[in-house]
Design a protein around this nucleic acid. Structure first.
Length: 213
DNA sequence: CCGCCGATCCTCT
DNA sequence: GAGGATCGGCGGG
């Protein structure tokens, strides 16, 4: 059973500022009803991407076919394909037209662990099943067809439940993983007590000058 | 345990 | 035509 995680979060939750939503998503539960059965993940690590103001955001250079969902209303999923093999998932935030989104980076599987294991057979430790954005998307079945899905509508294939918010003393903030642009902004938030949080890696274009320069 | 590297293809320039 | 909001296997210490 996947009950007991509280009410479903509504659109007003997601329509707030992206950094507020990102922080507020820690401890919430993303529940997926899939053909194989239900899988639920307690979110432990997220990153805020501040729309057209953010050089690291997919929306920075304006609307395209891929990122069109980001310019729509809050509470919708935005998924994208990277490195020729992985899917990653975001939740759109802010008012309509504000192309901000929260990247879901890691979580703990709290329901449907046998399904999650089957989807990631290489992972042996259960706490690592949803570590990393691609792993999280994989266990929840988030791929191309999930992009544009409404988390707050009448179709409840994917939805976010209240769960239990991570208390402030357990939240850390820091630079985003693998992001070179705006690396000084602390837009990554994570639960310091969770073993599922992914490993920090600086952005590829950071080239700190060797001494003498 | 840590760091390197290949895989693989969609997207935008 | 280049590079990317990544992952996991492999080899060395």
């Amino acid at each position: 059973m996947t009950g007991g995680q509280g009410r479903r979060l509504d659109r007003s939750f997601f329509a707030r500022d992206v950094t507020v939503v990102a922080r507020d998503l820690l401890g919430r539960v993303l529940l997926a009803h899939t053909a194989d059965g239900d899988v639920a993940v307690r979110l432990t690590e997220v990153e805020a991407y501040a729309g057209q103001d953010d050089p690291a955001s997919h929306a920075f250079r304006g609307p395209t076919v891929r990122n069109a969902v980001m310019f729509g209303s809050a509470g919708h999923l935005y998924t994208y394909f990277v490195y020729g093999m992985h899917w990653c998932a975001n939740i759109v935030t802010g008012p309509d037209g504000d192309a901000s989104a929260v990247l879901l980076r890691a979580g703990e599987v709290v329901a449907g662990e046998h399904i999650a294991r089957a989807r990631r057979p290489a992972i042996t430790r259960p706490e690592l099943l949803a570590r990393g954005p691609a792993g999280l998307a994989t266990v929840l079945g988030l791929r191309r067809d999930a992009s544009g899905a409404d988390l707050c509508g009448t179709v409840d294939r994917w939805q976010v439940l209240e769960g239990q918010l991570v208390t402030t003393d357990r939240v850390a903030a820091g630079p985003r993983v693998g992001v070179a642009a705006a690396a000084e902004r602390p837009l990554r938030f994570w639960d310091i007590a969770s073993p599922s949080v992914s490993v920090y890696r600086p952005g590829g274009r950071i080239r700190r000058c060797a001494s003498g320069g």
